[in-house]
Structure formats: structure tokens, C-alpha cells
Design a protein around this nucleic acid. Structure first.
Lengths: 146, 146
DNA sequence: GTATATGCAAAACTTTTGCATCCTT
DNA sequence: AAGGATGCAAAAGTTTTGCATATAC
């Protein structure tokens, strides 16, 4: 955890209206510095346990922090099939998900036409969209070869 | 539970490769004869408890039966935000969902253009779609007036 | 009659909460 | 110093499972 990175995380957390506590910093940095984009609470818990010199955090704290991050807009909570919550860092724009049912890989995509159609459907029904999610399940190119 | 309805349910269950047991018949008939389309396991449990002369079923049985129905293609299991599973009878074609976050109403819709775009996206990535779900959350026309 | 399904109770699993203690500001 | 955050353990909620008994074919 380099000093510079810590400063950035501290800044972001405070901007979000949250105190810059150690657990929040560690979770935010994990999400930002890992190439992994999608995390269950358990994933975060284990990653922090394994991550070297520091101690782990309580699982309850991880849930609390991720929920606060969600409220602050730093993170999005997704519900894939299987029931458990998956969290992803909010960076850049909205997108949807392709999930491989063999290897578990999650790919992100964005399609302007689909977004527009959704808005048109909502408009026709006089429905105010607050959120939406499109999850496409199937077998990815790599798994098809196996 | 009229005799005729029972026959139809029996037929469907057997066609699906399942024995025509009382719990399966009662659950299938509930799903087919109610105007309600979306059910949690708990919903089914309560509805069967309340439904007159018969006794209720064990919640475990309801989960088992709904899971078998899902496997047999009679029912689809959905995961909305909130974590609990919701089941709907498979009748007619695929569709997606608009969910009102105020009143909980679930509306179904189908959009050819969105389906086509999804296929195009999958094709480009060489991804074989097995399933997909599009959930749009927001406030419905009725709730907006309140 | 045999294999399968059900009921009941207990377990498994994810997520939340109460409370004493500790940390950030 | 004061309010909020954390850890721990316990609770809550949903879904699954083991096992003895009952049911369908």
C-alpha cells in the first residue's frame, strides 16, 4: 500500500462523505488495484486475509463498508444467478454483463441501441427507470474449445 | 381443484418426466390458476396453507418441487434485487421484466430489437447464449401519482 | 413391491445486527 | 472529547439436506 495510493483512496473516501478509516482504505485499494473487477464479500474477505502483513477485517465490516460504498456511488452491487451479491467498482460508465456458466468469467459490454430501446419501453409505459441490469449467460469462446 | 384441471396438471407433470404426486399437482395448479405470475417459495407456501380444505405442504417440498419444475422447463427461476428467488410459470415466450421499486409490481415485456442486439453482441464475441435476463427497476405510472 | 417423494428437523450459507471497544476528526 | 466505525458473536432469512415414513406406478 504505497503512500500515494493511500492518499488517493483517502481523498475518494472523504469526497464520498465517509471517514477515512483503515478498513475502508484497504477495501477501496483492493478494488482499485486488482485486475479482478467482480467481488463477493467473501472474496474481499479472503483477499485481505491473504494480502501480506496486515490482519484481515471482520466479514461484517466488509459488508458494512461495501454497502456504504454502494450508497456513496463508489460501488455497484450486482445479483447474478446463484443468489450471492457481487460488487464492482464504479469506474467509467454503465455497462451490462456476459457471464460464462462454465468458467465463471464475467465480461462487460455496453450497447447504445439496447439502452435506447429500454428508455423507449419505459417511456411508453410512463415508467421512470432508476436502474437496470442485463445479464447474458452462456458459454464463452474459450470454454467452447474445451 | 376440479377434476378436469387435475387431469391437465397430471398430464403436464408426467410429460415432464415427473410422477404425478399431490404436492406437484397442487403447486402446478396454483401457478396455473392464479392471476399472480411471480411467486417466492414462501408465497406458494402461504397460498397453499390458506387454500381451503387441504393441508399445507412443507416448505422444503415446495423448494424441491419448484427446482424440479425448473429443471423440467415448466417454471423459470428469477433473481431480482433483494436476493430471494422468484418463480414464474413458463407459458408462452421469453420476456423481460419491469419492476416497480415502490409497489413491487412486476410487468413483463418483450422487445425484438433488444433480443436481436443481444444475439449480435454474443456472436461478435463468439459466445453461446443459454439464457439472459433484463430487469428494469423504477417507479411505475401509478406510483408516480402518489 | 420398489423406487421415489414427502415431512420434519436440523444444517448450511449469506447477510445483518447488538454491543463493547477503538479510532478518526 | 465525541461521534462514528470496527470486531466479535449472535441472530435473521433463505435454501438445502438427512432420514424415517408415506406414496405413486
Amino acid at each position: 500500500m504505497k503512500n500515494q495510493e493511500f492518499k488517493i483512496a483517502e481523498q475518494k473516501t472523504k469526497q464520498a462523505g465517509l471517514k477515512a478509516t483503515i478498513p475502508r482504505m484497504r477495501i477501496l485499494q483492493l478494488l482499485e488495484n486488482s485486475q479482478q473487477r467482480h467481488w463477493s464479500a467473501e472474496d474481499v474477505y479472503k483477499a485481505l486475509l491473504d494480502s501480506g502483513d496486515d490482519e484481515g477485517l471482520a466479514l461484517a465490516t466488509i459488508y458494512r463498508v461495501l454497502t456504504q460504498f454502494e450508497g456513496a456511488g463508489l460501488v455497484t452491487r450486482l445479483h447474478f444467478e446463484g443468489g450471492t451479491s457481487v460488487f464492482e467498482l464504479n469506474q467509467g460508465a454503465h455497462h451490462d454483463h456476459l457471464i460464462c456458466i462454465k468458467c465463471g468469467k464475467i465480461e462487460e459490454f455496453f450497447d447504445e441501441a439496447i439502452e435506447k430501446r429500454q428508455q423507449a419501453i419505459a417511456k411508453k409505459k410512463n415508467f421512470d427507470i432508476t436502474d437496470h441490469c442485463l445479464h447474458i449467460y452462456g458459454v464463452c469462446a474459450l470454454c467452447k474449445k474445451l
